[in-house]
Write a protein that binds this DNA or RNA. Structure first.
Lengths: 297, 297
DNA sequence: AAGTGACATAAGTGGAGTTTATAATACCAC
DNA sequence: GTGGTATTATAAACTCCACTTATGTCACTT
């Protein structure tokens, strides 16, 4: 027969109180209740654990042996309780976050300083483009994936399997070389740049660019490709091409030799924090999500 | 709120089964029962411990933390169970026995070899005269006290506070020098030795001797006193006195130059194994008691 | 001898814990 | 797609465990 851990702990109380009724008082119970527990415990081990005296009880050898283990069990329970309490207060624990580069340069640092200020949470950051970040999330390599998505791209099946908190809407801006003839044209439209050379970013961004161009009525001539927003601005500043970049990327790095313009045809992207369904009820993860959304400007 | 150790162990089962229903099957329960336990456990710690998927569950960080402690608790429970099982089967444990010298020389060795043969029990022996042995028992310095008592001495209050198993009745015999005129007299009575010099043993034995003599109608002349049964026989063999000794003492050592006789007035002593009340239900102690009583001839 | 505090036992009761039944959801095979 | 089979949660009913109350006994104390 198997030992009931609760009764083992009751035995510990009894031995420490040196009497059954003493333990009962300490537990806020009546004496027969404790007597009954000890009785069933003894029946389950098949021998007496206590010798009854009119002055109280004294443990047998078996009782002493069991007491030693009971102490260990009680310690572990107490330690677990303390640890969980710390977690509940976000004093401990690590939340693993994956984010795309420009978010890592802008949104995340704000959120991290806020979290460090009012909790003891540790954050482990991983740089990853959205698709990779979602894979990390799926494989339980991260707890939160900060991703972006364009409204004109189909949501992938994997991205749908997560819950999301939307952090921010991130508008997209046009980038022109200062020397570009239309750099300062009023009422600038996308079609004005139908014949220009373009720099495209990552596959998703390229797709978004093409999609916007199609809606405006032309096929963009994409001469260069890079997902590095510093390189994009560098190419533009030297007059080699025009391009688009999200404002968050521009907030992360801004080349002064680039003219930033808006155009009515431009559609933005949405920045989401993804997490495994239900994970937002875990306090530490909720704290990170909260810090991220509050930081949105 | 305090953690219920049973539920912590259930959580361990669930995580190891990777699903609630899997754990329920393993436990021989239904799935809602386990769901309920996990639910109350989560409520008691104030945060989710598991993330629910349709394919099963995966532990949160808090769940993993608790799992670590659950493993430790389960180990301790298993270890305790194994240890107690060994004790129950008398494969382990130590029984501390106090006994008077002649018992230590005769009864105890027989019992010990028997115990060593069919159990792994360890025995720790202490030599002690009855009064001292009872004090050791009272102070929990030994588990069993092998003592003797004469029917004509009042039981002390302390000896009454123990339970006892009677090991043997030990008759007492007369010791005469071979040169004694009555050494081979038929129909020998105690009064025949009313004018002889006597050797008396320990205080109890002396009391017993005097008591027997009084009943026979004389006051014995006690010239020598020693509680060493070798010395007693040595004195008798050299014709310095007559004496009485229990048969167990004679079995331990027998001086061939002493004549051993019976007499109708002689009353024997009882040899008991004393133990704290209830201790005979402890298997290891019961084994020792059993070996002692079975050895009685 | 009465009082006190220990333990055990019996009987009654309330609630914790379990089962049965049902529903929702996701995945897999056909 | 659709049916079958996983998983989960939830509601309601029932069982039995684990308490309490009440009582008895024993030992020590006054």
């Amino acid at each position: 027969m198997s030992l009931d851990p609760r009764r083992v702990l009751i035995l510990k109380d009894v031995i420490e109180a040196t009497s059954i009724s003493g333990a009962a008082r300490a537990l806020g119970w009546t004496q027969p209740a404790v007597t009954h527990h000890i009785g069933t415990l003894e029946r389950s081990v098949g021998m007496p654990l206590l010798l009854r005296r009119t002055t109280g009880v004294i443990p047998t050898q078996a009782g002493k042996a069991l007491l030693a283990h009971a102490d260990a069990i009680a310690s572990h329970l107490a330690a677990a309780e303390a640890e969980l309490e710390e977690m509940r207060l976000c004093k401990a624990g690590t939340v693993r976050v994956a984010a795309f580069p420009s978010a890592l340069a802008t949104l995340i640092p704000h959120a991290m300083t806020r979290i460090h200020k009012d909790s003891g949470l540790k954050i482990r950051l991983t740089e990853a483009e959205p698709d990779e970040a979602m894979k990390l999330l799926h494989d339980d390599d991260v707890d939160v994936a900060v991703v972006f998505s364009y409204s004109d791209t189909q949501p992938t099946d994997i991205s749908e399997s997560f819950d999301r908190w939307t952090i921010a809407m991130d508008p997209v801006a046009l980038l022109l070389p200062p020397t570009h003839p239309l750099a300062h044209k009023e009422d600038l439209h996308l079609t004005d740049l139908a014949d220009d050379a373009w720099v495209a970013g990552c596959p998703r961004c390229r797709e978004h660019l093409v999609s916007m161009a199609h809606r405006a009525g032309f096929e963009p001539r994409i001469d260069h490709e890079t997902d590095d927003y510093v390189v994009v601005q560098s190419l533009v500043s030297q007059g080699l091409a025009v391009s688009v970049l999200p404002m968050v990327a521009l907030a992360a790095y801004r080349n002064e030799d680039v003219v930033v313009r808006d155009a009515p045809e431009l559609t933005g992207r949405r920045i989401d924090a993804l997490f495994r369904p239900g994970a937002d009820r875990v306090p530490s993860i909720a704290a990170v999500l909260g810090a991220l959304t509050n930081d949105a400007v």
